[in-house]
Nucleic acid binder design. Structure first.
Lengths: 251, 251
DNA sequence: TCACATTTGTCCGTATGTATC
DNA sequence: AGATACATACGGACAAATGTG
């Protein structure tokens, strides 16, 4: 038992398209190919690698889904080196959530913990540029709310900006993944301001948006003053409210 | 600017293979297809969806890389519904690390924070079953070391077991991702016990294994006694040593 | 042990849609 | 607007691997 402790999947037979994708991946890792560079078209690639176009296409699918390239149709199109790996991870995390590998309770609980850790790092490392970004975020949220619009995107983005201000890509990835799930949960239960949404529900949503935005403002002020305990206290209260809102969705 | 705040990629034109993969994915989400179920062979799928086999294959590549299916060749083979999404996320996190989106400093720093949070949850939620697993892990590590073998796998696994004992899949994913990177770093600089490894280096490695194992033992004892401060203190010292070892690798 | 059926892996050729110049 | 370049998609074919009788 426990023979899979070596690596992820060395047992797979090496298929041609896997070799091709691994090959191109290595060129990207080694810096030979950089974001912005264009890969040769499929036919050219098939000639250079000495495989068929179908094999090339399957290799491109892998690279595309792994977040290494994008593909554009039409003249002067083709495979383009582009780093979209963060999007890919977020999407996969969302998949894991939807596969019920993660419960709502788990998510909110972990989020509480992680947000606190992030706040601590922000107090330690954030500079004026970070604070300016957060201020701008709050400003845009305020504008939307005053115009009777939901500020869901901005309110989610606030937490991602916090993770960035913590100056650690791990937190950016983790927080981004968590917030991707939150965004999905929101969009499920308040799908735009369309006709099906009742006026009451919508006003309710605006109110929640405002509450969140006000908490964000308080948190930012505490962070600027490097007052970690207050920031944490406000974040706790904020997440408490968010949690109650999500619970309402799910019942 | 900032037009991508809606979703990940709504701008993509819907390609056939994407519709196919999305279709199958939905069946899995909805529970119509469950792990263990077999999908029809490619030709059958191409008939049912009314597309070519090439299109089906590209859809299967997506599902495979997303962690929803595995594919086996030969008689009574074919696409099999299987949840390997955790492996997929770990692999992607490793990619992100290798793309230099994450520095070693960032990784170890985030790991310090997260391990502490995990310890707190373990003290709160772990039961005897979890402790038994951890004890078994330490036992196996000890055995290996006494037989003059590296216990790298076991020592990495210890931290994953901690995350599981915290009873939160988010931590399992995050810790698993972090440890996947650690494993990669290790394997890069102590590739098996082959001839190229000098006797001195190897003995050195065994010593490190033993140190780690001893720390793990101490941490487990503290956890069993629900002594969080001591567990954290030992974890800090342990990670300090690990960090220094990694620094040696990278210089 | 050995043939056989099944299914993926890979190839080629061709046609179509689409974006760019 | 037309020509070009490219991805997308189709169909048919053979090779290779794998389980089954």
């Amino acid at each position: 038992m426990a023979k899979q402790n070596k690596l992820f999947s060395p047992l797979k037979t090496t298929r041609s398209f896997e070799q091709v994708s691994a090959n191109i991946k290595k060129l990207i890792f080694d810096g030979v190919l950089k974001p912005g560079d264009k890969l040769p078209p499929e036919i050219e690639l098939s000639h250079q690698f000495g495989v068929s176009r179908q094999t090339i296409r399957e290799a491109l699918r892998i690279l595309e889904l792994s977040g290494f390239i994008t593909v554009q149709k039409g003249g002067s199109g083709g495979p383009l080196i582009q780093n979209t790996i963060l999007h890919t991870i977020h999407a996969l995390f969302l998949d894991a959530f939807q596969m019920e590998k993660i419960s709502n309770q788990e998510l909110i609980s972990a989020r509480r913990d992680i947000e606190k850790v992030v706040l601590a790092r922000v107090v330690e490392k954030a500079d004026e540029t970070d604070f300016d970004r957060l201020r701008d975020n709050i400003h845009r949220a305020k504008n939307k709310i005053e115009n009777n619009l939901l500020a869901t995107d901005e309110n989610i983005q606030f937490h991602n900006l916090l993770a960035e201000a913590a100056k650690n890509h791990v937190y950016v990835i983790v927080m981004g993944s968590i917030m991707a799930v939150e965004r999905e949960l929101m969009s499920r239960h308040s799908p735009e301001e369309d006709a099906s949404t009742s006026s009451f529900q919508y006003t309710e949503g605006i109110l929640k948006s405002r509450h969140a935005q006000e908490y964000h403002e308080g948190i930012l002020n505490a962070l600027v003053e490097r007052d970690l305990p207050r920031a944490i206290q406000l974040m706790d209260a904020h997440l408490q409210e968010v949690e109650e809102r999500v619970q309402l969705f799910l019942k």
